[in-house]
């Protein structure tokens, strides 16, 4: 489903070229749970941004479901993010003064036409992550684990082709981390594709495939089961 062919990324700052990614060739199938690992500064975040259509590669090809995304303009990329991608961030990225329900519905702000069953879908997803009774709470009254569950619900609301999770447990204690990883497991079991960036081996162990980056190249690509 996801094809990266000879992907390159070089930053140009102040006339200096800083190459970050070299010749990345990765193919991810639908339903896979992939962990992206590597020490910091190896281009993990850059690859994540490119996969999330938040940044563009300077070379190579990125196709999603057979569509070449490198040729699309900013508005088209925005639409694909809105319809086909789900994001989960380390710092949750919730709007603190807006209710849990409104946070989950936020992606639909940019969806035309607005889905008629939006509220039902949000309610159902919040129930599935165990927050059915917190819908009208403000995020800042919730625990870190609960906030991350709101973020997961938000990532699922548009039934994305894949979920990009960037260090989703990086800001949580071990109990909350375990809960969040369990939720990812269950999402995965339902057939959702997940790509998770992490630098913790025990978190990566939950995935069925681990891709390790080193110095901007794929150093290893192992399937666990």
């Amino acid at each position: 489903m996801i094809e990266l062919q000879g992907l390159e990324k070089t930053y140009h700052t102040g006339g200096v070229d800083t190459p970050v990614l070299h010749d990345i060739n990765v193919s991810i199938e639908e339903g896979e749970f992939v962990a992206l690992m590597g020490p910091s500064g190896t281009g993990k975040s850059t690859l994540m941004n490119i996969l999330g259509l938040l940044d563009r590669p300077t070379g190579g090809k990125y196709t999603l479901g057979g569509v070449d995304l490198t040729a699309l303009d900013d508005n088209q990329l925005s639409t694909i993010r809105n319809r086909r991608l789900g994001f989960v961030f380390q710092l949750f990225h919730l709007l603190p003064r807006v209710s849990v329900l409104q946070n989950v519905l936020l992606p639909f702000l940019y969806t035309e036409p607005y889905p008629a069953d939006a509220k039902e879908r949000a309610t159902q997803i919040l129930q599935s992550v165990g927050l059915g009774d917190r819908m009208n709470f403000k995020p800042n009254t919730l625990s870190g684990g609960q906030q991350q569950r709101v973020a997961i619900a938000r990532a699922l609301i548009n039934e994305p082709a894949f979920i990009l999770a960037d260090e989703p447990t990086g800001n949580l204690d071990s109990v909350a981390s375990g809960e969040i990883l369990d939720i990812f497991d269950s999402i995965h079991r339902k057939g959702r594709t997940i790509i998770m960036v992490t630098h913790e081996p025990d978190v990566a162990a939950r995935a069925e495939r681990v891709i390790t980056l080193k110095d901007g190249r794929v150093a290893s690509d192992e399937r666990r089961r």
Binding site: D74, R81, F87, L95, L106, Y110
Partner: peptide, 16 residues
């Protein structure tokens, strides 16, 4: 700024 980044990630276009 982070909220703006989030809205862009969730599919908000520049003009939105």
């Amino acid at each position: 700024t982070r909220e703006i980044g989030l809205r862009r990630a969730l599919g908000g276009r520049r003009r939105d």
